[in-house]
């Protein structure tokens, strides 16, 4: 077994390769117990264009354990973070690595990692339906959890007009419906025919 690299070494190698394309890269360390055993987690964001390359770079530390992807609406942009662990079979050397990317809301798509790690498909399906972000190259383009419950075009984690507020407000009047009197029928499409919702950039905002 090759030697386990520490979190700072892993982050440094990413920073060296991706330079200014990597942002918000930092390490959080924690200590627990009487012996104050230390464990680390790395966070980093990589520009959308080099996101797949960054995920591939992670494979150089051995086959990582994929846990899940989380997604957030951060105002002008959408952010998707993939949480991995490197050295998952080690005795105390595991490092939780979070690699994420962002996309503007007027161009809501990011590349899928399904060619890099086959375990990501369910969570990518979930990000499409919950965040309204299209994952380019996804292996299974159906919805996962919301098929029978939420109409296409409503994205529960959005904090803009495509969020579920209207649906939630009317749920007592219309418990099986789409919030406006229409009945929800099973629908496997993640997006309406025009693709994911586009939020026009406000003047002077966003990057």
């Amino acid at each position: 077994m090759k030697q386990h690299m520490k979190a700072d070494g892993i982050l440094a190698s990413f920073k060296e390769r991706f330079k200014e394309d990597l942002f918000d890269g930092y390490i959080k360390s924690f200590e627990n117990g009487v012996k104050r055993t230390r464990y680390d987690q790395i966070f980093m964001r990589v520009k959308r264009e080099r996101f797949v390359e960054a995920a591939e770079h992670l494979l150089s530390y051995g086959w990582p354990h994929h846990t899940v992807a989380s997604g957030s609406d951060i105002g002008e942009e959408l952010e998707v973070l993939f949480h991995f662990e490197v050295y998952p079979e080690s005795h105390g050397h595991g490092v939780t690595v979070t690699i994420g990317t962002r996309c503007p809301k007027d161009d809501p798509h990011i590349p899928s990692l399904s060619d890099v790690h086959p375990a990501v498909t369910p969570t990518e399906r979930e990000k499409q339906e919950f965040l309204g972000v299209s994952m380019d190259g996804i292996k299974d383009n159906r919805r996962l959890f919301l098929v029978h419950a939420v109409p296409v075009g409503v994205y529960p984690w959005r904090k803009d007009e495509f969020g579920p507020e209207k649906l939630v407000r009317n749920v007592h009047k219309d418990p099986s419906g789409g919030g406006d009197g229409t009945k929800v029928i099973a629908d496997y499409r993640p997006f309406p025919p025009g693709g994911p919702p586009i939020v026009k950039k406000q003047q002077g905002g966003g990057s």
Partner: peptide
């Protein structure tokens, strides 16, 4: 990326308690 007793049954020694020791597991 299976987890839990399922993956350990297949002989993969993945266990967060030992790979990323939190709480008193480090001790």
């Amino acid at each position: 990326s299976a987890c839990g007793p399922l993956t350990r049954g297949a002989g993969v020694k993945k266990d967060v308690r030992f790979s990323w020791p939190y709480g008193s597991y480090g001790d």
